[in-house]
Write a protein that binds this DNA or RNA. Sequence first.
DNA 1: GTAGATTAAAAAATCGATTATCTTGTATAA
DNA 2: TTATACAAGATAATCGATTTTTTAATCTAC
Lengths: 225, 225
Amino acid sequence: MSNSLPTPAGPAGTASSRVFDHLRKDLVGGRFVAGEKLAINALKDRYQVGLSPLREALNKLAAYGLLVQENQRGFRVPKLSRDELDDIAQMRLEMEGMALERAITNGDSLWEADLLAAAHRLKRADITLDKGEEWEHLHTQFHRTLVAPCGSVWLLRFIEQLHDQFDRYRRLGPKMPTIRQELDEQHHQLVELALQRDAKAARELMDDHIHKSYEVALKRYQEHV
Amino acid sequence: MSNSLPTPAGPAGTASSRVFDHLRKDLVGGRFVAGEKLAINALKDRYQVGLSPLREALNKLAAYGLLVQENQRGFRVPKLSRDELDDIAQMRLEMEGMALERAITNGDSLWEADLLAAAHRLKRADITLDKGEEWEHLHTQFHRTLVAPCGSVWLLRFIEQLHDQFDRYRRLGPKMPTIRQELDEQHHQLVELALQRDAKAARELMDDHIHKSYEVALKRYQEHV
DNA sequence: GTAGATTAAAAAATCGATTATCTTGTATAA
DNA sequence: TTATACAAGATAATCGATTTTTTAATCTAC
């Protein structure tokens, strides 16, 4: 994993890595308006860090694609567009499909256990909590586990990046219980097919899963404008 | 292109963007030893910049994958490994193949002209210059042009990233004239097939092209260790 | 001798202040 | 009125110095 993004910095992390994690969450979670220009001084107060670590975090986020940097005129939150959403969803289809097939080929019994655990935690959170940050985290974790043993560090990296981008659209609006339930059921079906090592069926279900998520995201995007 | 990396900063760019470009070139071109720890103070002298812009550039390069950042212990040049080379080459196969097919579907006559021009410039440089940085730049430019109208900003972004990574291996050693000539011929054949809109044949040739490049890179990696 | 503690030097990360650039509002001229 | 020029304020980028943490070397106890 030497090339992955750093794992979330605990309390021991640097100021820069902590504000990176925090800003990443906030950008993905829609706490900023798309297109908005970031007022660095305001961020300094908001995240309680100095200028240097803040700027370093902003630079990383720009290289990662969650911010746009223009020389001499700071940082902005990237605009949202229908075209880009289509692009992101299409890429997710291709790349997560590929990754899932490979994961089903390579995954061992430890993976099976991790997968069951991740699905269970997600379901638990579904019932217990009101779907907040905690649910989002477990959801991300589930999808990450699903494709983890695909054997390609770079594929995993790209998928993670696409998820962050996709979630900027998906998380624009409030939850939609009906469709949400369908999607949640698909998580469990995905686990079943993975355990049965049915790569073809799993990929088809994943395609459908992404497609349904896309429709949610699109709807929210359209309502949001 | 709002989400792409910034275009190379001309003389008007910031110190940070200039050192980013320069470092990127040097990292891809193998001017640093893989695994080496970067001495920030030495870099300050080498690139004639202050600490702040330098650190911002290093942070961007880490998020981009050309450096590894460890909290509290600075930056290193990523190690090279056979496994990673295989991964990168495999991903290039998938993604550039996909991009080429789409480009052939979407590309208009302006693209055809750009493609011919890029191929011609590359051949020119091949004959005229001793293959230095200029040839490398034109080579990158050719491959970029080839897939440019694929319609996906994210696909292009990932491909660019993979090229940078791949070149860290390919550029480990001196040129190999025989195989190089084969590869150069393939560039022209790729243009021909693109103009004929023969997506299937073009993709097969691209597969072969990447495979041959992979063999060069692998050989150099093995000799390098 | 080896493991663990101690400390000095080196390096990374951060801070506060300065400099350069852009932006906005106002004035002037065509 | 419209366009251009200018000045003042705001913001971005950079610098130099400080603080924190790691690394390496040395010492001590077993």
